[in-house]
């Protein structure tokens, strides 16, 4: 495992921890899109079906279980926890996220590495992950004033994606037969979606002002 991949996994882990910290200690999910969290729960459930068929490493298995468990529990908290759910910006979080799922499924049926159930689900999870942040970005834009934890959550997610791109470049040049077009293209699309947010985040950080996105 190279340093980019490890750093990518760690920023991904930290992003989830930041979100759980916000929910557990502040008992608030203000500014967090339930739509995006539901999409992530579906992304990890459909991608990690190979937990039952393939063993890669203890690291791999533990990380998969963490991402599955955390994404499902975040959705549970936002929907059912009697205090947390009251802070959910339901009226602002109106992105019709289920409309993203059908095109991703059709694309997965058309473009996959092999036409098997696991491979189609794997491709579906990658296409869906690429666009899963959209409801969150729309919500950020609408809420205008973004608290630090929410900003850091999105920043860490974006860093995780950018580090994975570096990991792919590194692996392409150092490993033989390392070619994953589906992962690369959907991963790059996903990283570009964060670029706009990054721009405003660094502007506000540079000028030492509270992050505000333009309407």
């Amino acid at each position: 495992m190279n340093i980019f991949r490890l750093a990518g996994d760690m920023t991904h882990l930290f992003s989830v921890l930041v979100l759980l910290l916000k929910i557990h200690t502040i008992k608030s999910c203000a500014g967090i899109s339930l739509k995006t969290q539901e999409l992530y729960a579906i992304v990890f459930t459909t991608r990690y079906l190979d937990l039952f068929t393939t063993y890669i490493s203890l690291y791999n298995t533990i990380m998969k279980l963490i991402f599955l468990g955390s994404s499902i529990s975040i959705v549970w908290y936002m929907r059912h926890h009697k205090v947390v759910r009251r802070s959910y910006d339901k009226d602002q979080d109106t992105f019709r996220h289920y409309l993203l799922m059908l095109p991703c499924l059709l694309l997965a049926l058309l473009i996959n590495e092999k036409f098997t159930f696991l491979e189609v689900m794997w491709a579906f999870s990658l296409y869906l992950e690429a666009v899963a942040i959209l409801p969150q970005l729309v919500l950020l834009q609408r809420t205008r004033n973004i608290d630090n934890l929410t900003g850091q959550y999105v920043l860490l997610l974006g860093a995780y994606r950018a580090l994975y791109v570096l990991n792919w470049i590194y692996r392409y040049f150092t490993e033989e037969n390392y070619v994953h077009w589906i992962t690369w293209v959907s991963g790059i699309v996903q990283t570009l979606l964060y670029a706009d947010f990054f721009y405003y985040y660094f502007q506000s950080w540079k000028n030492n002002v509270k992050l505000q996105l333009p309407a």
Partner: peptide, 10 residues
């Protein structure tokens, strides 16, 4: 194994 067989990334 073929390159696409082993999916070791998360």
């Amino acid at each position: 194994a073929e390159s696409s067989d082993l999916k070791d990334e998360l």
